[in-house]
Design a protein around this nucleic acid. Sequence first.
DNA 1: CTGAAAGCGCTAACAC
DNA 2: GTGTTAGCGCTTTCAG
Lengths: 337, 337
Amino acid sequence: MSRKITIKDVAKHAGVGIGTVSRVINGSNSVSPKMKKKIFESIEALGYTPNYVAQSLRTHKYKNIAFFADISNPIFAQIAKESQIELEQFGYTLSLCNIGEKDIANKISSFLEGRRFDGIILSIPKEDDEELNESLSNIDIPIVTINRDLPNLTAKVLTDYYSSVKEAIIYLLSLGHTNIALVGGNKEIRPTREGIRAYKDAYLIHNRVPNQALIKNGKFSSESGETIFMDLLPDIQKGYITAILSLNNQMFYGILRGMRKAKLQYPKDISIITFEDSELMQLLDPPLTVIHRPIKDIGKSIVKILIKSIEEPEQIEEIESVVIPTEFIIRDSCRPI
Amino acid sequence: MSRKITIKDVAKHAGVGIGTVSRVINGSNSVSPKMKKKIFESIEALGYTPNYVAQSLRTHKYKNIAFFADISNPIFAQIAKESQIELEQFGYTLSLCNIGEKDIANKISSFLEGRRFDGIILSIPKEDDEELNESLSNIDIPIVTINRDLPNLTAKVLTDYYSSVKEAIIYLLSLGHTNIALVGGNKEIRPTREGIRAYKDAYLIHNRVPNQALIKNGKFSSESGETIFMDLLPDIQKGYITAILSLNNQMFYGILRGMRKAKLQYPKDISIITFEDSELMQLLDPPLTVIHRPIKDIGKSIVKILIKSIEEPEQIEEIESVVIPTEFIIRDSCRPI
DNA sequence: CTGAAAGCGCTAACAC
DNA sequence: GTGTTAGCGCTTTCAG
């Protein structure tokens, strides 16, 4: 291929100085209309596009965002997708970095090392990883977290777990369930805490106090969900536990698998509700009662906050968390007692 | 934060020339061991990491790969994830760009414009988009395609649709099914073509010729799958069509939804097989007979080919397509006639 | 084997 | 308003 054409070529072609071309490209300072026109023509004629790498080196702006999460979780994949679509409007690029359970601080810093990003989108598996929080607070570019309360990180997009979990539990209590198991991930993350808080409050409203043993915590995986279900199984078979609310879709798969193995069916043998409304959730038979959250809105909010933090840092005071509403959708996976 | 420390700082700290530091960083040419040691110590002491942007500007190497696909499809999200994990080993970054159905050529070129990538991973919805193929062949960096036969693009990672579809159809024929519907996406992509070829060959082996009308093409969406199912419905209810093989997971969701609406159950009313073995596929009741492909291997192969094309372009002659084997897994969604 | 210097393509400060 | 120039941080000749 022929050599990439540069700003110099444009300047020569238009018979102007290189600086003037730069000004036109950046729309900065006033350039005389005739110059402007001439330069635009040359840009067009030569098919010039500025080299972002060179621009970045000069300006310390990279138009590039790093996305850290566990993409195995389809929800994060969707959020990544929506964020990318949104970022594109602003001319930004999204670079993926998958993180698992372990060695996250290292993974993040080695990913960031040497590379240049203007901002970060992040969701990590625990909030109380001190080493990680330490290294996170040393990062000097804006970070937007997803559903996490991290010390020093104020820009966050949260899902309103509280309202819908409360609504769901109240719904179950109204159906006559008294012992509802709550299955969630690590206690050290916001969704679990909020879920538990909502759970307790819902019981309170019904003038009851839930059995602490009904609150089960594990990891965001189907294996963990299945393990928890198996723990619960004796009490389910005894008829003590009659409903389960799962705060996480991946754990929910494990619960379903466990039910299958134990030859239990919903809603006959147990009522169930889960978070996240994927296409398949509706295909399960009977269709599932779920808590749904709008992924597209989450992506949009993330990007909005992030771009603002990057491009208008002076207004950073005003940047706080955004809470995305959820929706409780009743279908056919719960039955009255 | 304090100013980023640069190669100059290291040179000064070590009392050497800037070029020597560079040589040490790149492991290039021989530098005397004592120098090397001193410089490494300074790098360590100052916590220096080279600025990739500056390196890129100089070397025209960016350590960055662009990924174009429709991430709505969980399969592509998984492939993106696996590719990223693999690329990381080589120090490369993955930038996402979601593409939909329309205006793809523009999307790709505007994404690439000005930015610098060393390679591209790509899967597009049709193979016969001339404008797109034209613009693709003008790209002067290595491109690895996923399951597409594109003119001029020889580096590809393919899934062996043929063998498993053939196996699956033979399985159905052996169960006594004679009229098996084949549901796939656009005819202008390799998976569909290969699926159809396998389908016909399987019939041939049984000394039969399939009814062309049983081959249905649509788009990779559940809506399209449902529409096709509804087309098929009369013949299913008549008992003419007794089995369906879906080449695509998203279309399959639509088929399931259609079955639900029509109050049909598998395997009783119809036998079904689909591509892609997700966790939920096993949770459907009864569990589904599926064709499975190893996503991790696909990611690895993509990256292997891509890195080789980038870093050892002289061996490009040898770089051809890799075919990833598939596996036909029999569970309980088909019954004998 | 090593230091000095040119230059990747661009922006911004500086003159005119 | 506009051209010239320094320099972002790095690699790579070029001398020595």
